[in-house]
Amino acid sequence: MIRYLLIRLLDAVPTVLLVLTLVFIAMRILPGDPAISALGDMATAEQLQVFRDKMGLNDPLWQQYFSFLGKMLTLDFGKSLMNGREVVDLIAFNLPYTIELTLAAVFMGIFVGVPFGVWAATNPNRTPDAAMRGFSLIGYAVPDFYLGALLLITFSLNLGWFPINGGGEGLIDRLYHVFLPALTLAFIKAAFLGRLTRTALLEVLGKDYVRTARAKGAREPRVVYRHGLRNALLPITTGLGLSTLAALSGSVAVEMVFNRPGIGKLLISAIAERDYAVIQAGVTVFAMFVVAINLLMDLVYVLVDPRIRVK
């Protein structure tokens, strides 16, 4: 088991390197000149030259690449080109908001999606199943920024039940602020997880060992939860990982719509202002997030499936 985890951890190393390389390449082929965007159109050729020297933009590419790798891995993201603040500080300030949004969305999505999926799977081709189908269709179809705007207009602007923007201060206030944005992401997640749970559970309930469970006298709730859902957790875990990643990318749009702090919002404004240092750091942090979630999912697999544990 420890070996399995170590292998997984080692597997992540090339992924991280690949991601960093892609970020590096992407930053070089982005249109626009970082020196001009930092110093403005009015800068003289001399000033630009000095800036490029200072930022190492005149070094050979391979040298730039290794110094980039070194800096990223030591979390040395440099200073924001716009306001001169340390990018690490910007990330450190914004990251908790994104994490809290993603976590809240994941939990809400699980608590709605999985029971709904179970309900649909235990009543196939009946009303709950049809409701599930409708719900997941809407969930798949509605874009997050649109749903977010809809919720914002209805519950914040018109009804005034929730705050219109910001991230909040203190635990209760932050939870209050995160509710609507998380709901937006959770709606889509619940649709996805619900559908997945229904399909996975329906398949598992047709398995021989479920019949065995019935034959030894287990009642339906026990059959469904202990034998059915417990086995359906394997595909659901995979889906959960995927949908957590989706929530992460969805958080970019949702943070914009609800005007709340977060890596997504930081990234969008950095792109608008061509703030390369921040873009670079933001994309890297997102990528690390993805790698971390994948690792976490591998961990969950071990808990869920004894067959992996032993191999």
């Binding site: 021989d208 065995t212 030894k216 006298g217 086995n231 067959r307």
Partner: peptide, 18 residues
């Protein structure tokens, strides 16, 4: 299970894998 118990054909798939 108590009065009437049953053994199935497929030993490979009739036990809960988890």
């Amino acid at each position: 299970g108590r009065d009437i118990a049953m053994i199935f054909q497929e030993p490979m798939s009739s036990l809960n894998p988890v």
